[in-house]
Amino acid sequence: MWKSVHTGRVWKYGNDVNTDVIYPGKYTYSDLSPEEMAEHALEDLDPEFASNVQPGDIIVAGTNFGCGSSREQAVTCLKYAGVGVLIAKSFARIYFRNAINQGLPIVQCAAVEGVESGEEVAVDFSTGKVMTPRGDYSFPPLSSFVTGILEDGGLIPHVRRKLGIE
């Protein structure tokens, strides 16, 4: 859920982490439960992740995170695994949209240069800063339109609110 300061333990990855290694295509057209989806999260990149991730953990990566397929499970499997914030130098376009639409806070900055896996970082959305053990990294604020979706908890609650559905 949306909160203005988020602190969590880091899982650090490199550049071009694609949607196939986040959530393999062979599961894409099977209707898995959130728990089952979480068990396959990052399966082909980091077999340690799914069994060790804790609620609120933060993924910190390099450029072009989430490139490849439009599959939304590449976002939801991380959300169901408990990931609180995604930080990368840059995100692939559809992945960026999917994360916002799922209400998973997403931050573009170079924090990957200041942190190692297992360390803690704090993300302050009000000031636009990620604080790492080796320095602070600023990120541009999201547009008010996008923040509106995140504050509503994702696109579905956002649309429900807009359509006046309780």
Binding site: R71, E72, I94, Q102
Partner: peptide, 13 residues
Amino acid sequence: GIGRTEAAAVMAT
């Protein structure tokens, strides 16, 4: 290209 949730939102709106 878009994601599934936003495709559902296009259907709704």
